[in-house]
Amino acid sequence: MAKYIARRLIQAIPTLFLVTVLSFMIISLAPGGPTASLLLNPSLTPQDRVRIAEQLGVNDPWPLQYLRWLIGDDWEWRIRDNSGEPKPGNRLGILRLDFGYSFVANRRVLDLFGERLGATLELGIAALLFALCLGVPIGILSAVMRGSLFDNSMRVLAVIINAVPNFWLGLMLILLFGVIIKGPDGKGLLPMGSRCPTTLATCPPLHERLNHLLLPMIVLGGGGLAGYSRYLRASMLDVIGQDYIRTARAKGLTDRAVWFVHGARNALIPLATFLGPAIAGVWGGAFVTEQIFSWPGIGRLTLQSLTALDYPMIMAVTVFSAVATILGFIISDVLYALIDPRIRFN
């Protein structure tokens, strides 16, 4: 097993390397290059601009710039201080988790990420749980009651959910629960967005937080819900045709035992492979969802950075999302191999 994990991790290295090259190239391709917004600052004198450009090394060939971004520039005695003495750079490079400073906030990118991570994780995990807790039972029940009204309506619903753009679904839910349906206090039944404010001193009661979480969770989890239920239905039908199910039936087990004990447990196995795509899906969907619901997470931060062309932030987001997705895929592969020994030896 350890060997398998090691192999998968080693396989990921070239992919990750490619990702860093790609993200660096995307940024370099952008009109004006990564430092345009910094250097166009009208309050800078031309001398300042030259100095900053030299400090940033924007005129060096891009492989060198890439290297600096990757491993930092403290090994290079490149920058000259006021007395003309060369001194080592102060960047550590992304391999040592130094993503630099945000142009806009003028703070460490990693700190900004850290502040927002909690909100994104809260929303993402809630959405995944929501999708799993509803999608799995629906999928199993659909398979058990194949051809029934429930099955058919769930399948239709799944297609419809996939066809409805999630930002519009979000808007409609806000409209319905935040504007049209009124709560007891005369305002909307549910808040129209934003995370429940928390401070160190006071933690709002759980139901208050859930009020804020409910709509974004449904929007972000909707796609997954449709996917899981469809996938599990197919998986169940696949399993139910297997020999061991026939054996179980021949042994005289009740239908319920056959479906839910022997069938469902085996049908759940392929679900492990869904973790990777699920992380990618939740991450991509978080941008839109966080934007609609003013959720103070990384997705919204990224959109703000994109609008402001805050390059250090954008590069960090690219790398982070790639790492998160690749890790998700590796974890799901490992899980799958762990549950199903046939994969490991294949």
């Binding site: 992919t15 990702v19 993200s23 995307i26 940024i27 391709l29 952008a30 009109p31 990777g276 990618a280 991450w283 991509g284 969907g285 941008f287 990224t302 994109l306 609008t307 062309l309 954008i314 987001v317 690219t318 999302s321 790639a322 998160a324 997705t325 690749i326 895929f329």
Partner: peptide, 14 residues
């Protein structure tokens, strides 16, 4: 194995 929507968003924004 990359989050395509994110990449697309970044590309289009830049």
């Amino acid at each position: 194995s990359l989050p395509t929507l994110v990449i697309l968003l970044i590309l289009v924004a830049l």
